[in-house]
Amino acid sequence: MADDLFAKARMAMRKAHAPYSKFPVGAALRTTDGRIFAGCNIEVVSFPEGWCAETTAISHLVMDGGGKIAELAVVAERLPLCSPCGGCRQRIAEFATAETKIHLCDVEGGVKKTVAMGELLPFAFETEVIG
């Protein structure tokens, strides 16, 4: 993973709106054509209605015209390793390939674990419309 991807994820984490959980998270993704999109978690008092950092980054990707994710970095302030939640795993799968690399980082920039999307969500719902 390149340092620029982690730097964008950490900058996004610092912008998180996490007044309830006090658990800021940042994510940054790089597309196959080299663009980088970052996002942070955004909480509201009704917890299920907030946005995860990965979701925010993906929404920036979609707003810029879409594309495929080549790699994604996730960093959280209070954990040495923060993995995307189940919902985010499926959202990431919509824009990834089985080989997309997911980097789980600590706040200092160390990659604690890198997994392929297919390993993170081995039985994702199919992303092609059947019909």
Rank of each mutant, 00 (worst) to 15 (best):
Ser59Asp: 12
Thr97Trp: 02
Gly109Lys: 00
Thr32Ile: 11
Ala16Ile: 02
Ala7Val: 13
Met117Asp: 09
Ile69Leu: 07
Val25Tyr: 03
Thr32Lys: 11
Cys85Pro: 00
Val62Ser: 06
Asn41Gly: 04
Glu49Val: 02
Val74Arg: 07
Gly109Arg: 00
Cys82Lys: 10
Cys85Ala: 06
Glu108Phe: 11
Arg91Pro: 00
Val75Leu: 11
Val74His: 07
Thr32Arg: 08
Lys112Asp: 00
Lys112Tyr: 01
Lys8Asn: 05
Arg35Asn: 10
Val44Arg: 10
Phe123Ala: 11
Gly67Ala: 07
Glu77Pro: 00
Arg10Pro: 00
Gly39Lys: 03
Glu126Gln: 13
Ala7Trp: 06
Cys52Ala: 13
Ala7Ile: 12
Phe95Gly: 01
Phe95Ser: 02
Gln90Trp: 07
Val44Thr: 13
Arg30Phe: 05
Ala2Gln: 13
Val75Asp: 03
Gly39Ile: 01
Phe6Trp: 07
Leu29Phe: 07
Gly87Thr: 08
Gln90His: 12
Ala9Cys: 07
Pro48Thr: 09
Gly34Asp: 08
Thr32Ala: 10
Arg89Ala: 09
Gly131Pro: 13
Asp64Tyr: 12
Glu54His: 04
Ala53Thr: 09
Thr127Lys: 13
Ser46Leu: 13
Ala16Gln: 00
Gln90Gly: 02
Ala57Gly: 06
Ile69Lys: 04
Gly67Gln: 03
Ala53Gln: 08
Val62Glu: 10
Glu108Leu: 09
Leu104Tyr: 10
Met63Ala: 14
Ala76Glu: 03
Ala2Leu: 11
Gly50Lys: 01
Ala93Lys: 03
Val45Arg: 13
Leu29Asn: 02
Met117Trp: 06
Cys52His: 14
Arg91Cys: 04
Glu128Val: 12
Val115Asn: 10
Ala12Met: 09
Phe37Arg: 00
Ala73Asp: 04
Phe6Thr: 05
Ile92Met: 12
Glu126Cys: 09
Glu71Cys: 09
Asp33Met: 08
Tyr20Pro: 06
Leu72Ala: 14
Ile58Ala: 02
Leu72Ile: 14
Ile36Asn: 04
Ala73Thr: 02
Thr55Lys: 09
Glu99Leu: 12
Thr97Ser: 13
Glu77His: 01
Gln90Phe: 05
Ala96Met: 05
Ser21Pro: 05
Ala16Met: 04
Val107Gln: 09
Lys8Phe: 04
Lys22Tyr: 14
Ala38Ser: 15
Cys40Ala: 15
Pro19Gln: 13
Glu108Pro: 06
Phe95Tyr: 15
Ser46Ile: 13
Phe23Leu: 11
Ala70Asn: 12
Trp51Asp: 05
Val25Phe: 04
Val62Arg: 12
Glu94Ile: 10
Leu79Lys: 15
Trp51Glu: 11
Phe6Leu: 11
